[in-house]
Design a protein around this nucleic acid. Sequence first.
DNA 1: GATGAATGAGGCTTCATTCAT
DNA 2: AATGAATGAAGCCTCATTCAT
Lengths: 195, 195, 195, 195
Amino acid sequence: MESHATDECAGRVRDREATRQRILDSARELFTSEGYTQVSSRRIAAHAGVNVALINRYFGAKRGLLAEVVAEDAVFPGIFEGDPAVLPRRLAEHLVRRAHGQSTPLQRALEQSAGDPDLQAVFQERLTNAIIEPLERVLDGDDARVRATLAASMLIGMGMVRRVEGATAMVRHDPDDLIERIARVLGCCLEPAAG
Amino acid sequence: MESHATDECAGRVRDREATRQRILDSARELFTSEGYTQVSSRRIAAHAGVNVALINRYFGAKRGLLAEVVAEDAVFPGIFEGDPAVLPRRLAEHLVRRAHGQSTPLQRALEQSAGDPDLQAVFQERLTNAIIEPLERVLDGDDARVRATLAASMLIGMGMVRRVEGATAMVRHDPDDLIERIARVLGCCLEPAAG
Amino acid sequence: MESHATDECAGRVRDREATRQRILDSARELFTSEGYTQVSSRRIAAHAGVNVALINRYFGAKRGLLAEVVAEDAVFPGIFEGDPAVLPRRLAEHLVRRAHGQSTPLQRALEQSAGDPDLQAVFQERLTNAIIEPLERVLDGDDARVRATLAASMLIGMGMVRRVEGATAMVRHDPDDLIERIARVLGCCLEPAAG
Amino acid sequence: MESHATDECAGRVRDREATRQRILDSARELFTSEGYTQVSSRRIAAHAGVNVALINRYFGAKRGLLAEVVAEDAVFPGIFEGDPAVLPRRLAEHLVRRAHGQSTPLQRALEQSAGDPDLQAVFQERLTNAIIEPLERVLDGDDARVRATLAASMLIGMGMVRRVEGATAMVRHDPDDLIERIARVLGCCLEPAAG
DNA sequence: GATGAATGAGGCTTCATTCAT
DNA sequence: AATGAATGAAGCCTCATTCAT
């Protein structure tokens, strides 16, 4: 039993815009929490309390719904404003604090869409065994696990971004300089002490 | 339409191991280039030039095929051995040099599994518009684009890893220290000069 | 090749209940004449003149269809009411008169039971609820349950044998005499005391 | 892990007859305990420790294997000999005592897989040859065939009900009393005159 | 504007069987 | 005589979508 996105009386008036919005809200919520692929059109419709056909009517197709959800979402709301010098810290705080709550739809959907249940188990085990733990073993000092995990994040993230972005910045950049930069970042991930 | 994984005449001998391997090769190739979810059992079989039933016979289920593909792949072959001090650089070189070729199956499949074709276009545009370019605008100096992309990689990667790894290292770590570390890493990503 | 359950023109109206019923009718007919395992979802759908997906839509799964078919079938309609003293005769008449026609879906499916794990639960419950317990309620004295079970065995067994044996002894025998005999046997099953 | 039907050394000699027999033994055991439809050719072969293809080689098809299993099985071994007057009691004892153990392959397979088209012919012939006609031969008077058929119905029916109902009434009832009752019912089936 | 019935395509898996060794 | 690799057919189910109301 899904609960409706917004509480409205059963015999509500016919309001194109409101209906559209209710669908959008439901989609955002479900995509965010479970991923695009995992959520069927029917569930979105049921959650919104509307008919399935309306998704196609209003958004052309499921894909259109995603596009709209993603478009309206501010990934890092307000983070980019303010003193650039402390931008990294603002981002970090946002990430960590939010980590205990919810991601933004875009990120979440991106993350979640790797969510074929079949894949989860395989990846979890493999990510740990083939990347994080080997890294951890090489490291000295405290918190080797966290440091290894940070580096793993960078490694995975670069793959995703390179792929999604296609042949852009990173690919076109001078390889030697790129190596230099990445090495520095990874070194930073792996450094023992934070303070 | 699919070309066989290995070119051999149709009337080939019956060789369990060879057939198994051909299936494995086809799966790796297709998973790597299109993602687990996108590739059907039938296509893998067709690509390998064998009957679909053999996939289940030899690997139990499609999932088993993935497990094996992923298991046999050395994500960073040989990278973890050697002087830890230059580990970051070895990783970086591996990433960048390989960047012009192919990722490893694990990474690729992970990346690709976010690969519902529907999602690709949406994400590409959104990743650029909502993360990379805003970051870029805040930065001074040359190569702002590359620096922004590096930071975006870290942001995306952390989401993925946190999700796939479940409630592990990063989630259990002291938040304040975590923020400190991440901020430092992001700062490192965004730093203007490499040398 | 299949003839539709009900003859209606192809361009019929969209009526959920009617369609559901048409599927149910087709399933009953086919299950009854050929058995659950032998009849595929596709054939039921074809026979009903509808799309296969509707079976899952309306009944969850093939098994659900069987459950419903079995549930709505009154195995011995009205037989258990009336004077218990002549219950055996009423049953016998029902069996013999119907013997020239068809078994009920429950019996038929029970006979066919093929041990399909799907069926066990459905049958166990239905055999108890629709035959044994109604019989038990009508009986006086101790051991009503065992007596009812014996009678049920005879009822079920006659169905099986008639079916497997084809048009032989029982079918060719004089109906009135057959009724007489069966009534006596059932009476014997239901008799209170053994000694 | 299936255990082999007979213990033989791994490097056994090639012996057509022995192999055939081992397959037959495995089939009987599995058909009897799980039913024809539920047991796959592969399992039989594995259980016998031989190659699947041999089933087809020696028995033409799975069905042929069943036919042979059923043919060699004496449904009520020795029961039909002896004083006809106490035949019902002998049958009843056989049924009840065996109820705590195993049915014969024929009955078991019949109970479990009545609907499989493969089985119809086999069963029809076997039911007639192994139960009805032996019974008929023992009986005097008119209508021996019908009386035998009634008794056969009871025998078959009890097997089905016991199986479907699980460990209920009949199994829990006092065996001696149960034998008494069943003997009486069977005697009633076999009685010459209806009026 | 909204509904919901109906569709068609496609996915994974299982099985008895045949073919080449 | 025996093997085991390989096949083709079929089964159930799920989904996004379209059509008629």
